[in-house]
């Protein structure tokens, strides 16, 4: 079977000569240039469309990758979010939203869960007060 390839390779030389012959004929055709101009135009248009479509920034793929080492003051916290490995992010985290920005904290730490409970309790209190008022 290796012989078969070699025969193929031999015929390839003959073919190459034919191709040279062909290209010398086709060189006369000007429409070859026209085709390439059209192709270039199509590519440029596509690229422009792509560029216009990408003029947005994605904040969606942001994740916590490391935890705060020091504690955050509770008074600075406005609220919290939960990042879990069951979604797109690779580690679990409690994200505290502070006046200065977001803080990634380790849910295994006691103070973190304590803050979460305090926020929850605070909300529960407000809830009870408001529902009483409405009644």
């Amino acid at each position: 079977m290796s012989f078969a390839i070699i025969t193929q390779l031999l015929t390839q030389q003959q073919i190459r000569q034919t191709r040279q012959h062909l290209s010398s004929i086709t060189a006369a055709g000007t429409e070859e240039n026209m085709v390439s101009v059209k192709a270039t135009a199509a590519v440029i248009t596509l690229l422009t469309v792509c560029m216009l479509a990408t003029n947005t920034s994605a904040v969606y793929y942001e994740c916590c990758r490391r935890y705060m080492v020091i504690k955050i003051p509770f008074a600075a916290i406005k609220g919290y979010s939960v990042q879990t490995v069951t979604e797109m992010c690779p580690i679990n985290a409690i994200i505290f939203h502070t006046k200065k920005g977001k803080a990634c904290t380790n849910p295994a730490l006691n103070w973190v869960m304590d803050y979460v409970n305090r926020i929850r309790n605070k909300a529960q209190m407000v809830h009870m007060k408001t529902s009483k008022k409405q009644q």
Binding site: S81, E87, I119, R120, A123
Partner: peptide, 11 residues
Amino acid sequence: PSHNMMFVPEE
């Protein structure tokens, strides 16, 4: 993504 949703105690 749920970590983009913030829990806030509000009125």
